[in-house]
Simulated scan of single mutants.
Amino acid sequence: MAKDDSWFMIRAPFVKNALWVCRDVEGGENGSERVYPAGKYVPQTRQTPTDSIGNWVKDEKHTDGEDILVYFTVGTTHIPRPEDWPVMPMDAFRVSLKPVSFFKVNPSLDVPETQDHLSVPAQPAQNGQACHF
């Protein structure tokens, strides 16, 4: 809800989007790694951190066929409580990424059938009739 030119958005451009995708850079740029999408020292800056997601995606290079990094924001912003001082507790959450339409068909359909001679019915057939469970 903050304006793009506000002090808050200049300092923390990572809040503009809930999902960010950028190219991974082997060995990092200028010896740095893309570990801190908000910048390494967010509380200590008044400008956009030079090594942050806002600058990583500035050039808008394509990510097709490239190694990528995905950053996402989960949940709501932190609402301070008296219990959070002097150390903020941890909130646990679980994330699951599941591909959709990744394959045109299920690749397990092409697995050859096995003949297992040890796999037999638990109950032998009675009077020539097959057992039905």
Rank of each mutant, 00 (worst) to 15 (best):
W7N: 12
N30W: 06
Q115W: 11
Q115R: 11
W20E: 04
D5R: 05
G27E: 03
V42N: 02
M88I: 12
K16G: 06
D59V: 08
R46Y: 08
D67M: 06
K98S: 13
G28A: 03
D91V: 10
D110C: 05
K16N: 04
K61G: 08
L97A: 14
D5L: 07
P121A: 04
G28Y: 01
E83D: 12
D67P: 00
R11H: 08
F72K: 01
A130Y: 12
D4P: 02
V25K: 03
D4T: 09
P89I: 09
T77V: 10
N127S: 14
Q44K: 11
L118E: 10
K3R: 05
T77P: 00
D24H: 11
E29M: 03
P37N: 05
V21W: 02
V70S: 01
V100A: 09
V25F: 04
D4C: 10
T45F: 01
R94Q: 10
D84A: 08
S119G: 00
E83M: 12
V21M: 03
D110A: 13
Q126H: 13
K16I: 09
G128N: 07
L109N: 12
R81N: 02
F102H: 11
H132T: 15
V15M: 09
R23Q: 12
G31M: 02
A18D: 07
W56H: 00
P82T: 04
D5T: 13
E83A: 13
V21C: 02
V57E: 02
V42T: 06
D91F: 05
D91S: 11
F102T: 10
L118I: 05
G27Y: 05
R94S: 13
D59A: 10
T114W: 07
P112T: 14
R11A: 13
V95T: 14
P43T: 11
V95P: 00
S101T: 13
M88R: 06
K104D: 10
E33L: 15
T63H: 01
N55T: 11
S96P: 00
V21F: 03
E60G: 01
D64Q: 09
V21K: 01
V15R: 05
N55I: 01
F103Y: 15
H117K: 12
P124A: 12
M1D: 08
M88P: 00
H78Y: 07
P37T: 04
A130L: 14
H132M: 10
P80G: 06
F72Y: 03
D24E: 14
E26P: 02
V25A: 03
R46C: 07
G28H: 02
A38Q: 07
V87P: 00
A12P: 00
V21Y: 01
P124I: 08
N17D: 11
C22L: 08
K61Q: 10
P80K: 07
L118T: 15
K58P: 00
D24R: 08
K3W: 01
T76W: 00
T114Q: 11
A2S: 07
D67V: 12
A122Q: 08
T63S: 06
Q129V: 11
G27K: 02
Q126M: 14
F14R: 03
K40V: 12
D67Y: 09
I68Q: 01
N127A: 14
K98F: 09
Q115H: 13
D24K: 09
Q44A: 12
W7R: 13
A92C: 07
V15P: 00
